[in-house]
Amino acid sequence: MSKILPAPFLSLFLLVFWLLLQNTVTPGLIVLGAILSIAIPLYTNRGRDFPATIHKPFKAIEYFFLLLVDILISNLNIAAIILLPSRHIKPALIEYPLDIVGEVPITVLASTISLTPGTITAEIRRDGRALMIHALNVEDHEKLIASIKQRYEMRLKEIFKC
């Protein structure tokens, strides 16, 4: 398994990507795509210095859909803030202490924070144990940190086992 398929999820992703690019599904294209998606990870595997294994693929899919819904809500929130006549927003710079370790999980968490309601990740602390978040409109920063923790970080911790 690991000799031929060093990164099974990358291979799957490449295959789907290939079929999407072609915009048709025929047996010939699937075979060609399968060959490419086995060959490319084999060739590029040495360059991957950030190994990350998805231990719970179904949790990862669930996470993706949770994220989609949250992006939708976040869009509506931001639209409301922009369109409301009052401009009394309460921005804040928040320090978010990290529980998870590893480059890939932290990158995923930082991107999630940037995509969801009113928060953007701006910087990581020098020791890599905290993120700096800019929040557009926040009343209670403790509550925000707690909600990110139990909504996203706990799930990522389960998915990557880190």
């Binding site: 992006i71 869009n75 931001i78 922009i82 369109l83 940037s114 995509l115 953007i120 557009l136």
Partner: peptide, 26 residues
């Protein structure tokens, strides 16, 4: 459009960043 309006209307750089990154996705 709302994202672009936000880019023009919000008060400072960091706040402006929020509008285009989120509203454009939808």
């Amino acid at each position: 459009l709302i994202g672009s309006v936000g880019l023009a209307r919000l008060p400072d750089f960091m706040a402006r960043l929020h509008a285009p990154t989120k509203s454009t996705t939808l």
